[in-house]
Amino acid sequence: MSAVFEVRNLKRSFGGLAVTNDVSISMAPGDRVALIGPNGAGKTTFVNLVTGNLKPSAGQVLLGGEDVTGLNSTQRVRRGLVRSFQVTRLFPEMTPEEHVALAILQREGRSGRMFGSHRAMADVGEETAAILSTLGLSSLADNRVREIAYGQQRLLELALALALKPKVLLLDEPAAGVPQSDTGLIEKALADLPADLAVLMIEHDMDLVFRFARRVIVLAAGEIIFDGLPSDATRDTRVRQAYLGSYADARSLA
């Protein structure tokens, strides 16, 4: 299958230090890829380069075959590259229903409308209800976000991503900060993501990585040192070496 998302020889250096060095990745629709790496490996920089929040020193980012390297982050979102945040970024005074409706309206190019409430738009209401229901948030639809639990806020982040109907979804530690009791909900939501969506997940929690990903990419010191099956990653010598120091033994990954 042709690549829906591709990164070619991406480079970014701060001062003389190459934080992302010649990174190339290709993903097809339906891929479930986890990007892992020890602290300081350059994961955050990589995410920012992909989303367009940082400009690369060299290399290209392609979405569905189109070069989007010159586009800013909002233009990339409109072309189907959507991200979630490591620490939830939501509107504290707005309700989940308003969040999802706004995302749907934005996707459809109706967010600039100055007349009529979204509540009077039946199609938006239906889709909002359906998305909230998928993620088990229906009962909280009218609560203000600052009043709902963190685990549910994380689910709402996923709801926003789904409402935008992306082609490529970048999940930045989707389970970070979620109490143990709620991680099951997040995992279920991740398992239920649309089958044709390409998902790239940045994650520290190895249990989650091995349950979710069918392919693992290991980043260390700004370079890809492994790209392959999760089961092979734990046996790879370079991966073990990279993790020595931050993890006692790569065997504990499995």
């Binding site: 707005m94 706004l102 967010s111 100055m114 007349f115 926003l160 935008l164």
Partner: peptide, 27 residues
């Protein structure tokens, strides 16, 4: 009308978290 419209909602969103609004693809 305007403050209650989708546009008004977008503006309230910008006040509360402009980065989130950008991540939704809005300018």
């Amino acid at each position: 009308q305007i403050v209650r419209s989708p546009f008004g909602m977008l503006c309230r969103g910008i006040r509360q978290d402009p980065l989130r609004v950008q991540a939704l693809g809005a300018s």
